[in-house]
């Protein structure tokens, strides 16, 4: 049931978000083919096909239990899929651990944010990959790179990169986790409900950050329950329903009500099989 055609003429009222480089056919950054995952009798993912193009923001939406978290964990190397293949830049890959995935350039920013509160921003940015000189930590080099990366990502809310991460707000922590991924040369940043616990200002900051990432050519796969956020930043939408990927394509083909219909029923007359119909 998946829909991967991105050259459908845009007929919605929304202006197209043309980050796809003119829409010429090219190898997607990440291509999932027939990914299934079962936990014993529970079929959490059923033959999921999904293309994630480079430099675009893909929103993964779906009701609770639809399989969104399971899908990103399969991509991130946390769960091995029961079957199916994963192509990275056209090459088949099998990341078995988060570190394998990170080595490919797939970074996941988890809901619970894998940062150490008791370590400062610089230390967290480099955790596990510290710069050293003569056996000792090269704090100066790490601090300079941290400052530069935060500047590149236009993260301007932290007062000092030497403050402990425990003293940061939720939005700032998110920004640090993302910056950490970017510094590791991530090509795809995956975020599971990044704005779920955030206030208005911090949410805006995170959405800005997502846009900055895609403007720097980094793909973003973001799970969100907030359709306002989705329509504010996403270039593409992928909808999951009971373990199936029921629809995906450029955001221009969707509007909030058709998306809600897809999320709740798994199908929408208005998007498929007649995606030309428009709702403003």
């Amino acid at each position: 049931m998946s829909e991967t055609n991105s050259s459908t003429p845009d007929t919605t009222a929304r202006p197209p978000m043309d980050n796809s480089g003119g829409g010429q056919p090219s190898v997607p950054l990440l291509a999932l083919r027939g990914i299934s995952k079962n936990f014993g009798p529970v079929q959490a993912l059923q033959r999921v096909d999904l293309d994630i193009p480079a430099g675009q923001v893909t929103a993964l939406v779906g009701d609770n239990g639809a399989g969104k978290s399971t899908l990103i964990k399969a991509i991130a190397g946390i769960y091995a899929p029961s079957s199916g293949t994963m192509m990275w830049n056209g090459q088949e890959v099998h990341p078995h651990t988060p570190r394998d995935a990170a080595a490919l350039g797939i970074a996941t920013v988890y809901q619970d944010l894998a940062l150490c509160d008791n370590i400062d921003i610089v230390g967290n940015m480099f955790l596990g990959f510290e710069d050293t000189s003569a056996g000792a930590l090269d704090e100066i080099s790490m601090e300079l790179k941290t400052v530069q990366t935060l500047k590149d990502l236009q993260v301007s809310t932290v007062k000092s990169v030497r403050q402990l991460v425990g003293s940061l707000s939720g939005g700032q922590r998110q920004a640090i986790a993302v910056a950490r991924a970017v510094m590791r040369d991530a090509r795809l940043v995956i975020m599971d409900e990044p704005t779920a616990a955030l206030g208005v200002t911090q949410t805006a900051n995170v959405l800005n950050l997502i846009k900055t990432l895609s403007s720097r050519g980094i793909s973003v796969l973001v799970i969100s329950h907030n359709l306002n956020d989705v329509f504010a930043v996403a270039d593409r939408i992928a909808v999951m329903y009971l373990g199936n990927l029921v629809s995906n394509g450029p955001i221009s083909k969707y509007d909030p009500s058709s998306t809600v219909e897809l999320i709740t029923t798994g199908a929408s007359e208005r998007v498929e099989p007649h995606p030309l119909h428009s709702f403003a």
């Binding site: 988060p98 894998a114 940062l115 150490c116 509160d117 370590i119 955790l127 596990g128």
Partner: peptide
């Protein structure tokens, strides 16, 4: 000591 899970994810 601060967050063993974060350390594990960082490959430690």
């Amino acid at each position: 000591g601060g967050n063993a899970e974060a350390a594990r994810r960082a490959g430690i």
